[in-house]
Structure formats: C-alpha cells, structure tokens
C-alpha cells in the first residue's frame, strides 16, 4: 500500500510538472513558429524560449527521484 502511494506520488510529481511544461511550451512554440516565419534569424532565441519551461519537468523529475529514493 505504502509503496503504491509512493509510486503514485512520484508519478504525480513528474506528470503534473510535464503537463505544465507542455502547456507552456505549446504557447511559446506557437508564438515562436510565427516569429521564426517572419524573422528566421530569431531561431536561436526561440529555441531558448521554448526550452525554458523544461526546467519545471526537470524539477519534477528531481522531486520524483527523491520521493522514490527517500520515501520508498
């Protein structure tokens, strides 16, 4: 039971973070694609902007790893 709850907690930690990252990236990506179509030289900056929300899922991964390692 306890192991199951730990696993669900870890899943939620990374899953919700991934969802948040996805939502943010979809909006930035859509705007970025429009910007790159107008100004191709902005490609580097757009990659950077799209990549910024990924920190959320990485922190989710770190949290999930800690839940599994310390709580499991």
């Amino acid at each position: 039971m306890e192991n199951g709850l730990t696993a669900i907690g870890a899943g939620l930690a990374i899953g919700l973070a991934a969802l948040g990252t996805g939502i943010a990236q979809s909006r930035i990506g859509a705007a970025g694609a429009g910007a790159v179509a107008e100004k191709p030289e902005l490609a580097g900056v757009i990659i950077l902007l799209v990549a910024i929300p990924e920190t959320m899922v990485i922190l989710g991964f770190a949290t999930a790893a800690m839940i599994l390692l310390l709580g499991g």
């Binding site: 990924e54 920190t55 899922v57 990485i58 922190l59 991964f61 770190a62």
Partner: peptide, 12 residues
C-alpha cells in the same frame, strides 16, 4: 540553484 538543478536533465 535552479540553474544547477537544470543539469539533472542529463540524467533524466
């Protein structure tokens, strides 16, 4: 601190 933790992506 977030910048350092960001390198966890290498592991992930």
């Amino acid at each position: 601190l977030g910048n350092v933790l960001s390198y966890l992506r290498i592991a992930a």
